[in-house]
Design a protein around this nucleic acid. Structure first.
Lengths: 335, 335
DNA sequence: TTGTACGCGTTATCAT
DNA sequence: ATGATAACGCGTACAA
């Protein structure tokens, strides 16, 4: 069979069977309304012409796109898990996922929000630390939005997240209880809210255990292995190097371990290293990383699910906080 | 200022300034056609009403979606790089990316293709090994498609890929030249074309070097660390264990190393291990993996770029083959 | 320089 | 059970 140049439309089908487009439309969306013989004829014509309803036209009519935009700071293994969760939730609720990454650039972030304002998608799952209220013209103008992973101060947007501060405090307390007192911290990327909150947790734990906070023991990385390596190098030049290091994510922890080894130190015998996130690498690295598990997949799943609910008119909880868990493996030991 | 319930349309703007919708439309798409004063009035009204053109309506009119669907077998770190490339190319050509993963399920694959047939997207970048010609009703019925990563036998679809066979042959030859003759291979997931081609490359190299191919030295994994670990465990029970192992990807190579260590073997002193892909982990693992670099990002980038060209009516090359490179690090040494 | 009116491909209301 | 037709929101011939 030969098809014409243009894809067949509902009109072509109607013409082929000598019926109205209304009937063809019903054959698709409400077949029970049709006489069984006509239905058969229509279905035959549809098959022969290779007709498929045009989703753009349908979406215009329904005033929706069935698309959810997921905006993340970067496309890293960490956000991959997040994204998998988002994709699954979208799938289950009949949406497709449009993905955007911002490289932590507020301008790019705003560009994605603008796209959704223009109905490129029905709503947006946003991982950000930018000040949305300052960024846009107030949150009333935002499209349906769920903020994921961390709170967005003052935006009043619904959130699905973990308590990064409490989790970091738990991690640091673990090292303190192991007898360490000179504990360094490799912080995350500048401008990342998560990084700030994890740093705060580290500080809280020190205070709670009566250990003086020493700013010299905190260095900023950017969540990459290289930055962790560099920070550790720097710590090792100190007169009294730390006996334990708490990195704000697993990759930087790996970097720290690499630097330590390069200088002949054993982990955890000489220095204990704690990661964060429990990324894939944490479990397979040698030594396997003691770290804090962030339910990344769950956060992606749940935030997208809540957005879908929001889009279907349901009321959703303003702030969902999921649990973190300390995963003890082999990169830290008692002093 | 207070906005109405419904988002403003071009009609609202026209009414607000007492002009026709045509003028407002031109103010957006072709401002130079307007009298500068009217332009100003229109722009003011647009700003006040918070008007944004509805992309769905625009897309319907233009008969396009400006969306590209990227379909991958799984959302793993490997495909993350691929996806980053795709996203960048899409960005540069004014497209957004819709992502789908199939878990190597032909049914799901077909579902995505059907979505594009229904104009959910303008075209599709497909990573697959399924027999497309058998799957669909012939490739004439396929939407604009570029196949990425590996050839799709007989489909005649444009391709952007590497030569997995040649690359695997190169890797195996490297081990042979190091003096190894009992070389095991941990193959990739069943039904993966890449896995098959890499296995063939391994066999070719043996033959070319006059080494008998021993089926007992080949075990199938599924590209995960765990499967690599299992396969290695099995090899170690043999009467004459291999002195070198070539894994079809880096994760399985890591698994093999873990198993070897668990049995007290040192890598590379006792056994050499070769990875494949040069994923992120290859460079940071201890020992760092000797592996073959697949330009994953590039493949994603290039395939999406070619699709964008195809969509804009350009002729594109039928088969783009990118180069691979042996990356010598520390997981293999001379016998 | 601006306006009128049609078409993009659907779905749904109201007739018949 | 089926048909005619009005939206959905936009872009653009063609007219003025």
């Amino acid at each position: 069979m030969s098809h014409s140049d243009r894809p067949a439309t509902i009109r072509d089908v109607a013409a082929a069977v000598g019926l109205s487009i209304a009937t063809v439309s019903r054959a698709i969306s409400n077949p029970s309304l049709l006489n069984s013989q006509t239905l058969e004829r229509v279905e035959k014509a549809i098959a022969e012409l290779g007709y498929r309803p045009n989703l753009t036209a349908r979406n215009l009519r329904y005033r929706e796109t069935r698309l959810i935009m997921v905006v993340v700071p970067s496309l890293s293994p960490f956000f991959l898990e997040f994204f998998r969760g988002a994709e699954q939730a979208a799938n289950e609720t009949g949406y497709n996922v449009l993905v955007g990454h911002t490289d932590r650039d507020p301008v790019r972030e705003l560009a994605f929000i603008d796209q959704v304002r223009s109905r490129r998608a029905d709503g947006i799952v946003l991982v950000t630390s930018a000040d949305l209220t300052a960024l846009g013209e107030g949150s009333e103008d935002l499209p349906p939005t769920v903020v994921a992973l961390d709170i967005n101060a003052g935006s009043g947007l619904p959130t699905v997240r973990v308590d990064h501060t409490a989790a970091a405090e738990m991690a640091t307390a673990y090292l303190l209880n192991l007898g360490h007192t000179r504990i360094a911290h490799i912080a995350g990327a500048q401008g990342s809210g998560m990084a700030t909150h994890r740093l705060e947790g580290y500080q809280h734990a020190l205070v709670a255990h009566g250990v003086d906070y020493d700013p010299a023991l905190v260095l900023q990385g950017d969540f990459t292995v290289e930055s962790g390596e560099q920070a550790m190098e720097s710590f090792l030049t100190r007169a009294a190097p730390p006996t334990a290091v708490f990195a704000a994510n697993d990759e930087m922890a790996v970097g720290a371990i690499r630097a330590l080894r390069a200088h002949g130190f054993d982990v955890p015998r000489d220095v204990s290293v704690l990661g964060f996130d429990d990324q894939r690498i944490a479990g397979i690295y040698d030594p396997p990383l003691t770290t804090v598990r962030i339910p990344t997949f769950e956060i992606g799943y749940r935030s997208t699910l809540e957005l879908a609910r929001l889009l279907s008119g349901e009321a959703i909880p303003p702030d969902v906080v999921l649990d973190c868990e300390l995963i003890v493996r082999g990169s830290a030991q008692a002093r």
